[in-house]
Simulated scan of single mutants.
Amino acid sequence: MDRRELAAFLRSRRERISPADVGLPAGIRRRTPGLRREEAAQLAFISTEYYTRLEQARGPRPSREVLAGLARALRLSDAERAHLHHLAGSPVAPPPGPPREVRQSILDLVRRLPQSAAFVTSATLEVLAWNDLAAALMEDFSAVPRRDRNLVRRVFLGPHPEGRRLYGVSDSDAFARHAARRLRAAAARYPDAPEVTGLVDELLAGSPEFARLWASHEVEGPHTLCKTFRHPMVGPVTVNCDTLDVADRDQQVVIYTAVPGSRSEEALRLLSVIGTQRMDVPL
C-alpha cells in the first residue's frame, strides 16, 4: 500500500468534483475546491475520521468494500478505479464474466461501415452486435437465440450433419483452432464465470475435436487474413479479415472487406441490397 500516493490521489479526485455534481448545495463558506472531506466520506458511506486519515496517509489498508465506496463517491473511471486499487495494495478483482455490453461508440462504428460486414464478439466469441451486411453475409443473428450466436458453439456443435461448417466459410478448420485458443484464454481470465466454465464443459462433452484441441493448451497462433464465404445467393465472396481490440471490454470488432473492383465487392454490394431475405424459397 502506497499511503502517500493514495492520499494525494484521493485529494485530487475529491477536489475536482463540485457539490452540484453530486446533488449537494454549494454553500457560501466553501474554502476548498470540490467536495469537503466530510462530504466525500458521506458519499462513500465511511466515517469522516477514517477518510481524513486516508488523505493524511495515516489510514490502514481499506477493504474492497471501502474502495468500491470511494470509487463510487469520487466518480472514478474504470482506469482510475484500477489505479485506486493498486495504490491501496488490493488489485481489482476480475469481473464475474466476459462483458457483454457494447460501448455506444463501437455500435456507431459498426453501423457506419455500410460496405463492410462488421460485428462485435465477446471474449467467448459470442456475437454481441452486427451491421446489416454482416447479417446478410453470415446469418440474421437477430433471428436466432443468444446461445446460437456463440461462434465456438456453432463451429463445434453446429447443426450441419456433413461435419463442421460455419456459414459456408472456407477456413472452418483454422477457425476451430482459433476459437479453442480464444476460449482457453478467456477461461484463464474468468476462471469462476459459470458462462465460461459451462461452455467449456458442454464442448468437451459434445465434441471430440474440441477436446483434442483443448488438450493441446494452445493460446495463440496465426490469424486468418482472408477467407471465402460460399453464399447461397451470390456465390463465393472472398474478404479480407481485420480485427480491432476493445481492450476495456475484452471484446473484438471483426471487419470483412472485399478488394476494391473485385467480383466479391460486387457481391457485397448486392447483399447490401438483398439483405437477409431469401430468394431460393417460395413466397
Rank of each mutant, 00 (worst) to 15 (best):
L84S: 01
S47D: 12
T228H: 06
H83G: 08
G97K: 04
F119Y: 12
A41T: 06
L43I: 15
A136Y: 03
D148L: 08
G158T: 00
E15C: 03
R30M: 10
R263K: 15
R11M: 08
F156D: 00
D148P: 00
I274V: 15
R100Q: 12
E162P: 00
P161Y: 10
G163M: 07
S77D: 12
H86Y: 12
F229D: 00
G89F: 13
R182I: 07
R31I: 04
S262A: 07
L270Q: 06
M1L: 09
V152N: 01
S172K: 02
E139A: 13
Q277C: 11
S264C: 10
A44Q: 02
L54Y: 04
F9M: 05
V246Y: 00
R100H: 10
R81V: 02
S90N: 14
E202Q: 15
G59V: 01
D245E: 13
Y190H: 03
D173I: 14
G206H: 13
S264V: 03
D248F: 03
I28F: 08
A179H: 09
H231Q: 08
R112T: 09
P208N: 14
S172R: 08
P282A: 13
L203G: 01
C226R: 14
R58E: 06
R3N: 04
H178S: 04
L151W: 03
V219F: 10
L54V: 08
R184S: 05
E49F: 07
P282I: 05
V152L: 03
T257N: 11
V92L: 15
E15P: 02
P260Y: 11
L213Q: 01
E65M: 15
V102S: 04
P194Y: 06
P282F: 06
R11S: 09
Q42P: 02
Q277H: 11
Y256N: 01
E202I: 05
G168T: 06
P94Y: 15
D78A: 13
A68L: 10
P62A: 09
C241V: 13
S90Q: 12
S18C: 05
R263N: 12
D171Q: 12
S172Q: 09
M233H: 14
R61F: 11
D132E: 15
V144G: 06
P145D: 07
F119Q: 01
A186T: 07
D108G: 08
A267E: 02
C226D: 10
R100F: 05
L213M: 09
E202Y: 04
T124L: 05
A136T: 08
R212T: 14
R278K: 06
P114V: 10
E218N: 11
Q252K: 14
P114F: 10
G168A: 07
A205G: 15
M1D: 01
L74D: 01
S77P: 02
S90M: 13
R37V: 10
R53G: 03
R53D: 09
P98W: 00
T121W: 01
R269Q: 07
A129K: 07
E55D: 13
R149L: 05
A40V: 11
I274H: 07
V169L: 11
L203D: 00
A8D: 13
R4Q: 13
P282R: 09
I106T: 14
R53C: 05
V144N: 09
R72L: 14
S77F: 09
N131H: 05
T243P: 00
L35F: 13
H178D: 05
D250L: 08
L43S: 04
Q252T: 13
R13Q: 14
A187S: 14
R58H: 06
R146L: 12
G27D: 12
W214M: 04
